[in-house]
Amino acid sequence: MTRVAGAAGPPGPPPPDRDATEPRAPSGALHGRMLQVSRLATIGEMAAGIAHELNQPLTAIANYAQACDRLLGKPGADPRDLRTALREIAAQAVRAGEIIRRVRTLARSQPVERSAADINSVIGEILELMQTDARVHRARLLLELTDGLPQVSIDRVQIQHVILNLVRNGLEALSGSGSAGGEVRICSGRTGGDVEVAVCDNGPGVLPQELERIFDPFFSTKPSGTGLGLAISNTVVRAHGGTLAYRPNRPTGACFYFLLPHETAE
């Protein structure tokens, strides 16, 4: 049994026109959830933040090292100046290391609040957010959710971040290809004993030579990408005992999917 919903026509009456002076009243529970999701930085924003943070100690190290090189080239350089700079270089290298360690433990260090959840409702809670993104990219967001799936034990917010990240990747791939009729499809279903969520787009897809590296930290095919979105998403899914993978979409495009083991009766 499959429900299909298009981005253009949500069930129920059409939304009233927005008035700049009179913001539309948010629908209570959903709005609260969305706030919760957006208050925590999304994976993409988090990744950009990490890259920026890492740049600071690297810049300081480069500056000090180049200054030392210059000072040593002059006769009568004061060893105390050089020592100051060298100590700073060491301190900044440690700082950079700490930032990287934080990336590694990101998924683990966050307080994990796992609870039994219906994956379709997890997706439903961020639907409005994703539809806004889709509109910005002039693409259609389609849902193909399978009813009656077993519950999964997850940290809702973390899994929502993974889905958001995959959807945003898909939307960006579409706008990069520049063609009209772009679509991102979110599907839920069952694969073996696991619950599967797939995010597929009809963009250009992943090049064969890039396939091996797409989950590597700092690998990106986007001009201003950090290369951390998929790497962090992968870590989050694995921390849930699941797997995140890629398959080409038919007839064209990319499909990223993850499997979550379903809640076993205890």
Partner: peptide
């Protein structure tokens, strides 16, 4: 706003 970047730039520029 980053103290380390700021200090390293001052050190570098003063060295020249």
């Amino acid at each position: 706003d980053d103290e380390a970047v700021r200090n390293s730039l001052r050190f570098l520029l003063r060295s020249v």
